[in-house]
Computed example of a mutant assay.
Amino acid sequence: MRGSLSVRAIAALAVTPLLRLAVARYAVPAGTPNRTGCEGCGEPIRLGRAGLGPAARCPGCGARVGAPPGSVELAVLAALAVLALADATLAERAALAWWLGWVVPLALVDLAVHRLPDRLTWPAAAGTAALLGVAALTDSGPIPWLRALAAGIGLGLAFAATTLLLGRRGFGLGDAKLALSVGVLLGWYGWPVLVIGLLLTFALSAVVSLGLLLARRVSWSSHLPFGPFLILGTCAALLLTT
């Protein structure tokens, strides 16, 4: 068992350069072209080049590239723990693994620049829905899948509605697109799981926001990225209910 977990951990960590590449490319302010090179010396950022390892340093000038050192690796190990502990069939695990693979860079990009790029949110939603469709064909039948689609569309529209009605005080459209995949994943396991996931998400957001306010790290007018809370709340709901 330990050997199997070690193999999985090594395999998961092997994808971290790809995830680091995604963070480095997309962690730029809205309206800015995706990053293609080191901001210090222009060294190209692509797979096969140094600088996408745990140290996160450019080989040319030593500047930091993308996510903080070790952050992607820790996030991948946490995602692997969620995948290992969740009670799911093989097809469901494939859907969860797909979702986790996209939301790890999404969380880090949102923390860095407060945005959730379409190039990460859309594949997360589409792939999760498709793989759960496979699970419906092989294991569970159409009802959970139809419920998952309804939950994903409904949650995405609900988040988008706050943007239209409340402007900057509501959720961003990036949050709404992330909510699509969250709704699909939680809705697959039932409406109560979806509700629990949302309650945990807002509870985590409230506790962290209050802590930062008391520590005077933010003010009442500060805007905290919501994507990481949505991802953590989803993972917590899956671990507590499946």
Score class of each variant (00 low, 15 high):
A179Q: 07
L199Q: 03
V182E: 08
L173M: 15
L212P: 00
F171M: 13
A176P: 11
V195E: 04
G190L: 09
G183R: 08
S181K: 01
L204K: 05
F202P: 01
L213A: 04
G197L: 04
R216K: 14
V218G: 01
G172P: 01
F171C: 00
L214K: 12
R169D: 14
L194V: 06
S209Q: 09
A206V: 11
W191R: 12
L199E: 04
L214F: 05
D175S: 12
L198Q: 10
L212A: 04
V218W: 05
G211Q: 07
R169G: 14
L213N: 03
K177R: 14
W191L: 15
Y189S: 13
G170T: 06
L178K: 11
W188N: 10
A176D: 04
G211R: 11
P192A: 09
I196Y: 12
R216I: 09
I196P: 00
I196V: 15
G211A: 10
G170N: 06
I196H: 13
L180H: 02
G187Q: 01
V195L: 15
S219A: 14
V184W: 07
G190Q: 13
F202M: 04
G172V: 02
G197N: 05
S181V: 04
L173I: 06
R169C: 03
A215G: 05
D175W: 13
L178S: 06
P192I: 03
V207W: 05
G190T: 08
W188R: 09
V208E: 08
G187P: 02
G183A: 08
W188S: 07
L210E: 01
Y189C: 01
W188A: 06
